[in-house]
Design a protein around this nucleic acid. Structure first.
Lengths: 257, 257
DNA sequence: CGATTTGTTGATCGTCATCAACACCAGTGG
DNA sequence: CCACTGGTGTTGATGACGATCAACAAATCG
């Protein structure tokens, strides 16, 4: 079980949690693991939040729907991330969660989540940090859909997905998981499936990007980033280690510059 | 000075802060008040966060720009709201802030902000609650731009701006501040200024909505909401009073259902 | 003089309809 | 038991056509 969700949380948690705490945390994840088939709703808009959800493997999509069925994917939750903090904040959820493909997610109930947070004080601040980055990503998606054209949008999303998994390559490119169908890619970018298809083909022509077997191949990241006008600052990579110290300013200490 | 920013914060703070604390808070806002002219940048993407900013009067726009100048307004900060919590979270801001029109904002430096938060423990949780709602609004803007067409987008934004100021009218309509030019309205909705103009005209024809003298007149809110497919749940109105209790789950207690 | 309004033209992207490739499954027969 | 078959559903790939909205230019309002 370890490994799948260690991408984001694991490295940090190793520093923040004692071995004993870490065991409690991992046991909790394992005990509450649950599988969902592709497309199945995990939570629906309007429900009372029921659990703290951590993605263990696969991707979660946050989405919203208009009354007539038009659907927008709002965000993608990758392994190791919490879906949201709704359990501790809102009375009713304002968006839905669904499985992008078959996935495993830990669903930790209210009592257990509260106990966990008491045992691992840094955990709360780490969760908050995740929310901060999620909000920053949501802003980038807003300008993505609002200002970029089709090819820029798709390229930008590819860059983001890659960077969130692998970081920014110093040179050259690489490959990473990419679990979206072209249809879902369309729902995420505010385009139609047909147009996404044309766009992906153009990206293939212009910079040899490939989408095969649920993997994304980017031969030259800089080239793709250039098409997308991609600027990774909104991902706040490599700030996570500092986040806990800094958040202390909100809840007691004075914070750091 | 009181009154302008009491819309959102004031009512709640009255319950949460003792009179003495309240005086400290108000004095701090007044002491740090600063004016900006229309369009002037308050903070720029890439800077280190320098202050906790509370809007006192006027509106702040969060925005991002692409290298070629295309610009997207990401969010609007109304009087009584904090612009962001960047001071306590990120190393460098990932978006810019500017004045929609002449405005007054309190800019509280790091030391003083930390002191304030120590003196008023509930303040931090209230600020966090604001961030949660802001994130929910950002999600709605994503689907707004991604899925709705021009008239729906503009109608939706009007509904939101109205509801954030006045709440949802049980029946009929009303009026509220609306400080955006059509150009800014375009930047917020991902349309062009020209198309916004035509769209506003159509809304005028279809449901007598008027935009005059920085005021928005909505004769029949339900009619406009119908065009927009507006669903206010994402604003989490009337949950603010509960937010502080609920957030306790993150930082100590067990939280409430 | 900024903000709004109007007109014209055309590119981008959506709609509709179809088809190919492929996996998955059940059943059939060797 | 395995190979072959056909049915079905999903995903990706096309083409023709049209609507929405952007781009550009200019007039008018306040």
């Amino acid at each position: 079980m370890t490994g799948a969700y260690s991408v984001t949380f694991g490295r940090i948690l190793n520093r923040l949690l004692s071995p004993a705490e870490r065991m409690v945390w991992e046991a909790s994840l394992a005990r509450n693991a649950r599988d969902y088939a592709k497309g199945i709703d995990i939570a629906r808009e309007g429900e009372r939040p029921a659990a703290l959800r951590i993605v263990l493997s696969g991707w979660v999509q946050k989405y919203k729907q208009l009354p007539d069925g038009r659907r927008q994917i709002l965000a993608l939750v990758l392994p190791g991330q919490a879906c949201d903090l709704d359990l501790f904040t809102v009375a009713r959820t304002d968006h839905s969660l669904a499985a992008v493909r078959r996935l495993t997610v830990a669903e930790i109930g209210r009592q257990e989540a509260a106990a966990l947070l008491r045992q691992c004080p840094n955990l709360a601040q780490l969760l908050c940090w995740g929310e901060i980055v999620t909000a920053a990503i949501q802003r980038e998606w807003t300008i993505n859909i609002g200002q970029r054209n089709a090819i820029e949008r798709v390229a930008q999303l590819m860059c983001e997905i890659f960077a969130r998994q692998q970081g920014i390559p110093a040179a050259g490119g690489g490959e990473c998981d990419f679990l979206l169908t072209q249809w879902q890619l369309a729902e995420a970018t505010g385009l139609t499936q047909v147009h996404v298809n044309r766009t992906v083909q153009e990206l293939r022509r212009r910079c040899s990007v490939e989408l095969r077997n649920l993997r994304l191949f980017i031969p030259d990241f800089a080239e793709l980033a250039d098409i997308a006008a991609f600027n990774a600052n909104y991902l706040h990579l490599d700030e996570t280690e500092l986040a806990v110290d800094r958040a202390a300013g909100l809840f007691g200490g004075i914070g750091r510059d």
